[in-house]
């Protein structure tokens, strides 16, 4: 079961950024109705079962605000 964590306070919001939802191929993320301390609406996980662990949201996020926990630890490319 993949686990997608939203680090709400690091996020700059889906209103102006929204890159995570754009790059997610499975519509795992929706918009949270709760502002964070800086006044942004972070995304929230709405369909975790659909997540394929592609990692796009985590890789593209410009603010290190999403962590996708991989089921199996990826082999570190050295």
């Amino acid at each position: 079961m993949p686990k997608v964590y939203i680090l709400r306070e690091a996020c700059k919001g889906v209103v102006d950024c929204d890159i995570c939802r754009f790059v997610c191929p499975k519509d795992v993320l929706g918009k949270s109705d709760m502002l964070n301390r800086k006044g942004y609406f972070p995304p929230e996980v709405v369909d975790e079962d659909a997540c394929t662990q592609c990692g796009n949201c985590m890789v593209y996020c410009p603010d290190m605000a999403i962590v996708v926990e991989m089921r199996k630890a990826k082999k570190a490319a050295r």
């Binding site: 306070e9 690091a10 700059k12 950024c17 800086k38 996020c61 410009p62 603010d63 290190m64």
Partner: peptide
């Protein structure tokens, strides 16, 4: 939960100064 790359940032850094959606964060 901490982002795995967080360890490379200065402890004093809370967030980047970039505007929402700026590509510079992805470069970082």
């Amino acid at each position: 939960v901490e982002h795995p790359l967080r360890k490379y940032l200065r402890p004093s850094v809370e967030a980047t100064t970039f505007c929402p959606g700026c590509g510079d964060g992805t470069v970082l």
